[in-house]
Simulated assay, not measured.
Amino acid sequence: MELRVLKYFLEAARLGNITKAAENLNVTQPTMSRQIKDLEWELGEKLFERTNYAIRLTPAGELLRERAEDILFMADKTMQDFKSLKDDEISGDIAIACAESRNISFLAKCILHLKKTHPRICYHLYAGDSERVLEKLDKGLFDFAVIVENVDVEKYNSLTVHAVDRWGVVMRRDCQLAKRDFIEPGDLIDKPLMVSRQALSADLPKWFGDDTANLNVVATLDLTYNGSVLAREGVGYLLTFDGLVDTSADSPLCFKPLMPELTTNMYVVWRRKQQFTRAGEVFLETIKDLL
């Protein structure tokens, strides 16, 4: 399985058209078609099926797309890491997966500090729930992760961020609950709720207790901004951290904290026995000083 052929496959999957993909990659359409057919033979699975106007991925193709993206990302990252070894000046890329939180301001301070001393370091930030983030961290696709759940100390080293995120509900100002100073579990039992998948399984059961099974969850999501748009349109009540949504006086939305209070801790984690580049080493030392 060649990296070049995986690039062909991903471009065809992205465009849904082999001819356009071939043009973008400056190869002939017969060459790309043959390479993809050879890849299907090698894997023993059909990767695309034809529709009237395009091609689309089969279930096997969907699986390969996810794996191919990881493989090519890791290949590119490895090349960049080795190139940075030849530089006299510390340079290179640092991949960081981050939870959504206003408390990642410490990360901004770290980057600003390093821009003065090591301006050739480039930072790549990625978002995702903790399960997917840690899976990619385990594969070496990320150098660090900033997570909002307890750390498996047998697998990861960690630093504690000395700030907590406070949970609450974002809702329209014309909602009846918007008149409340805080929200209690019983207030939400019959309400349409929107929440991240991770929080639904890991955080909210601590607060709702036995009532979790009776919740009316109308949407699960990854990005708080998308949830805020749905809340603004009146789809439901968004459970999220304080500070992630604009609830200023001019906003149609407001934030009400949960009572009893529910908070979540934040950690910077990395794999045990991880071999860092020089850029990764100086980043880690700077984070330790800041925290």
Rank of each mutant, 00 (worst) to 15 (best):
R4M: 11
E40Q: 11
K206P: 00
L253A: 03
M194E: 00
M171Y: 08
M259L: 15
S101M: 06
A213F: 06
M32C: 06
C254G: 04
M194F: 11
A75V: 04
I90D: 07
E100M: 05
Y237A: 04
A21Q: 04
K77W: 07
L85A: 07
R4F: 07
W167L: 11
K116P: 03
D38N: 13
F82M: 13
K37D: 07
L63N: 07
L238K: 00
L64K: 02
V229C: 09
V146L: 07
Q275P: 02
D138W: 02
L244H: 04
S248H: 10
Q35A: 15
Q29W: 12
N216Y: 12
M194Q: 05
P119F: 15
S101V: 04
D81H: 07
S130N: 14
L3R: 07
R4W: 02
V146I: 15
A145Q: 01
Q29C: 11
P119C: 11
A54S: 15
T117K: 15
R197E: 15
Y53Q: 11
I104T: 06
R166Y: 12
R65S: 14
L10P: 04
P59M: 03
L63R: 10
D87K: 10
L85H: 08
Y126T: 09
C98D: 02
L125K: 05
R34D: 12
E131A: 09
L284V: 01
I147E: 01
T31P: 06
A127S: 14
G209Q: 06
D143V: 00
S158L: 09
F73G: 01
L6S: 02
N216T: 09
Q35E: 15
L193W: 00
K155P: 02
P59D: 13
R232V: 06
L291T: 14
S201D: 10
D88W: 07
L114P: 00
A54V: 05
Y237E: 06
A199T: 07
L188H: 02
E62H: 10
V195Y: 01
A60N: 08
L10H: 04
Y237M: 10
R232T: 10
A13S: 15
S84D: 08
N52W: 12
P205K: 00
L290H: 14
V245P: 01
K46I: 13
Q275N: 09
R65M: 15
D246A: 12
Y53K: 15
V229R: 11
R34A: 12
A178T: 06
G236S: 05
H162N: 10
E135Y: 06
E261R: 12
G186Y: 02
L112W: 11
I55Q: 02
E11V: 08
G186M: 05
L258E: 00
L159M: 15
A279V: 03
P257F: 08
D242N: 11
N216K: 14
A97I: 03
T263S: 12
P205M: 06
D165G: 14
Q80N: 08
N226M: 10
Q176V: 07
D210N: 10
D93R: 12
G186E: 13
Y237N: 04
K206M: 09
V235Y: 11
